[in-house]
Design a protein around this nucleic acid. Structure first.
Length: 115
DNA sequence: TTTATGGCTGTCA
DNA sequence: ATGACAGCCATAA
């Protein structure tokens, strides 16, 4: 194994928890990166969520498109940017409406898990 | 090892 | 509303 002593498999566990939370976001609802981080037990790690989703394989079944930034917008990718369009389509397909400035009204569509 | 990004965010001007 | 800044930390070079 290449992994030595110290923090045991943190990266793996981190991604695991992030994906776990994302998989629970119901259709027609969205969550912000920061929100996912908090729910995953790592408040303030919004960027980690972005990383975890960025390396997601294309054939992944995870609802990555239901994660948006704090303003309710689809965050810009570093690459081409075609995924942003896909994300928008996927959301509209599950009837999430976009308001002015390509924004989603978080007050209306934000996911609110019970516990 | 060090440095520079990066699907972010809250605070403050 | 917009912009600068500072945290946070995984990855890539």
């Amino acid at each position: 194994m290449t992994r030595r002593a110290g923090p045991p498999a943190r990266r793996t566990d981190t991604h695991r928890r992030i994906y776990s939370v994302v998989s629970r976001i119901p259709r027609g609802r969205v969550a912000t990166y920061g929100q996912v981080a908090r729910l995953a037990g790592m408040p303030g790690q919004a960027r980690l969520v972005g990383y975890a989703l960025a390396i997601l394989p294309d054939q992944s079944r995870l609802p990555w498109h239901r994660v948006v930034n704090a303003k309710g917008e689809i965050s810009a990718r570093s690459d081409g940017g075609h995924m942003e369009v896909i994300q928008r389509l996927l959301l509209q397909r599950e009837r999430v409406r976009f308001g002015p400035h390509d924004r989603i009204r978080l007050a209306v569509y934000r996911w609110r898990p019970r516990s």
